[in-house]
C-alpha cells in the first residue's frame, strides 16, 4: 500500500513536469515555432528557481518561497527562450539547429554560473556544480514526508488556464492561426512575429517552471552538470502523443509519469520483483515507451501546418 502511494506521488510529480513543459512546447509549436530547446530552457528555469531556493531564508512563509522560486524560474526561462525567438522569428534561422544549440548552451551556461558562484563563495576549493536547498524545499511540500507539493496545484491551474487561453480567447485562436496559416492570419491584420514571440515566451515560462519542478522532485539538491536528463525531449514526445491539445497532453503526461516513477519505486512491488528486471531496464522504460508511442502516433499526426517554417511576408 505504501508503495502504491509512493508510486502515485512520483507519478504526479513527473506528470506535472511533463505537463508543464509539453504545454510550453504546445504553445510554441501552435504559434509556428518548433521548440527543440525545451531541455535548455528547463535547465535555465531550474537554475533560476534553485538560486532562489538556495539563497532565500527558510523562515519565510512557504507561499512566499514558492512564488519567489516560480517567478525566478519564469524569468530565467523566458529570457533564455528569447534566444530561440530572435533566431527563429527575426533571423529565419534553422529552428532545429537553434534549439539544439540552446540545449547545449543552457547546460554549459548553468554549469558555468553555478560553478563560478561556488568557486567565488569558497575561495576556489569548491568547484562543484551543485546547489542544495533542503530546508526551503520542505516548505514547498503540502504534507511533510510526501512528494505532494504546491507545484501540483500550480500545474492544475496552469493546465486549465492553458486550455481556456488556447481555445476560448481571441489571443489563443490568433496564436493557432499563426501556426496553421500565417499568411491568412497576417492578411487580416494579425502580427505573426508578435504572436510567435508570445508562443515562444510562454513556452519559456512553462519550460522554466517545469525545470524547477524537476529539480525539486524527490531530491533536495540540483547538480547542473547532469541537467534534466532528457525530460525536455520526453515532453516533446508527450506533446506529439497529446496531439498538441492541452487536455490530451495531461493524459499522455500521466502515462509517461507512471513509467518514469517506476524507475524510482520498482523494488517495492512483488510482481515487479518477481520479473527480476535489472534497474537499467526501468531507467530506459520511459524512452522506450515514447519511441513505441511515437511510432504509432506520428503517421497521422495533427501537427500545426506551418510549424518550423519561417514566416516570409512575400509569400502571402
Amino acid at each position: 500500500m505504501q508503495q502504491i502511494m509512493l508510486l502515485i506521488q512520483y507519478t504526479l510529480v513527473y506528470a506535472s513536469v511533463l505537463t508543464l513543459v509539453a504545454l510550453g512546447g504546445c504553445y510554441s509549436e501552435r504559434s509556428g515555432v518548433i521548440n527543440i530547446g525545451l531541455e535548455g530552457i528547463m535547465v535555465m528555469g531550474a537554475l533560476g528557481g534553485a538560486l532562489v531556493l538556495g539563497c532565500i531564508s527558510p523562515d519565510l512563509p512557504g507561499i512566499v518561497i514558492f512564488l519567489a522560486a516560480v517567478l525566478a524560474a519564469i524569468v530565467f526561462g523566458m529570457l533564455f527562450s528569447l534566444l530561440l525567438g530572435v533566431a527563429a522569428i527575426n533571423f529565419k534561422a534553422d529552428q532545429t539547429l537553434a534549439g539544439t544549440a540552446m540545449n547545449m548552451l543552457g547546460l554549459a551556461l548553468a554549469t558555468v554560473i553555478v560553478k563560478a558562484l561556488n568557486i567565488a563563495a569558497s575561495g576556489g576549493s569548491n568547484n562543484s556544480a551543485e546547489i542544495a536547498y533542503t530546508a526551503t524545499r520542505e516548505k514547498l511540500l503540502l504534507a511533510q514526508g510526501t512528494e505532494f507539493s504546491m507545484f501540483m496545484i500550480l500545474t492544475a491551474i496552469i493546465l486549465a488556464a492553458a486550455y481556456v487561453l488556447l481555445y476560448k480567447t481571441r489571443f489563443g485562436l490568433r496564436l493557432m492561426a499563426c501556426g496553421e496559416h500565417p499568411q491568412a492570419a497576417n492578411s487580416v491584420g494579425i502580427s505573426v512575429a508578435k504572436m510567435r514571440y508570445a508562443g515562444v515566451l510562454i513556452s519559456g515560462a512553462l519550460g522554466g517552471i517545469g525545470g524547477l519542478v524537476y529539480i525539486t522532485a524527490g531530491v533536495s539538491k540540483a547538480n547542473f552538470e547532469v541537467g534534466v536528463a532528457g525530460f525536455g525531449f520526453l515532453a516533446l514526445a508527450v506533446m506529439i502523443f497529446g496531439q498538441w491539445k492541452p487536455h490530451r497532453i495531461v493524459l499522455a503526461a500521466l502515462l509517461f509519469g507512471v513509467f518514469r516513477a517506476l524507475a524510482n519505486v520498482n523494488n517495492g512491488f512483488d510482481f515487479l520483483t518477481a520479473l527480476n528486471l535489472p534497474q537499467p531496464v526501468y531507467n530506459m522504460l520511459p524512452y522506450i515507451i515514447s519511441l513505441i508511442v511515437l511510432a504509432f502516433t506520428s503517421k497521422n499526426s495533427h501537427a500545426p501546418k506551418a510549424e518550423g517554417i519561417p514566416y516570409d511576408k512575400s509569400t502571402r
Binding site: 539547429l97 537553434a98 544549440a101 554549459a108
Partner: peptide, 10 residues
C-alpha cells in the same frame, strides 16, 4: 562551442 553552434544558425 555552444555559442558558436547557436551563431551558426545565423
Amino acid at each position: 562551442s555552444a555559442i558558436i553552434i547557436y551563431l551558426c544558425g545565423f
